[in-house]
Simulated scan of single mutants.
Amino acid sequence: MAEIIRIQSISQLHAMMGFEKPTHPLISVIDVSKWEIGKEWVGVKAVSDLYSIALKDASCGLEYGRNTYDFGEGVLMFTAPNQTLLKTKEQALGEVQGWMIFFHPDMIRNTPLGQLIDNYHFFSYDIHEALHLSEIEQHTLGECVNLISKEIKARIDNHSQRVIVSTLELLLNYSQRYYERQFSTRSAQNKDVVSQFERLLKEYYSAGKFAELGVPQIEYFSDNIHLSPNYLSDLLKKETGVSAKDHISTFIVEKAKVLLLSDADSISGVAYKLGFNYPHYFSRLFKSKTGLTPQEYREMN
Results as ranks from 00 to 15, higher is better:
M1E: 07
H14Q: 00
E20S: 15
P22I: 05
P22G: 12
T23C: 10
P25C: 06
I27D: 12
D31V: 13
W41S: 15
A46K: 15
S52D: 15
A58G: 07
C60V: 06
C60M: 14
L62R: 08
G65D: 03
G72C: 13
L76K: 02
F78K: 04
T79E: 12
N82I: 13
K89Y: 11
A92M: 13
V96F: 03
P105R: 04
G114I: 09
Q115V: 15
Q115Y: 15
F122I: 00
H128Q: 10
E129P: 05
E129T: 07
A130E: 13
H132C: 04
T140D: 02
E143Y: 00
I156L: 10
N158F: 08
S166H: 09
L168A: 09
S175K: 05
R177K: 03
Q182Y: 03
S184W: 08
S187H: 07
A188D: 10
Q189H: 13
S195N: 14
K202M: 12
K202T: 12
E203R: 11
Y205L: 02
S206C: 13
E212Q: 10
P216Y: 08
I218H: 00
Y220N: 11
F221Q: 00
H226Y: 07
L227G: 14
P229I: 07
P229Y: 06
Y231V: 03
K245Q: 03
D246C: 12
H247T: 00
F251I: 06
S262L: 12
D263E: 06
S266Q: 01
K273H: 08
K273F: 09
L274A: 00
G275H: 14
L285S: 01
G291Q: 06
R298N: 08
M300S: 07
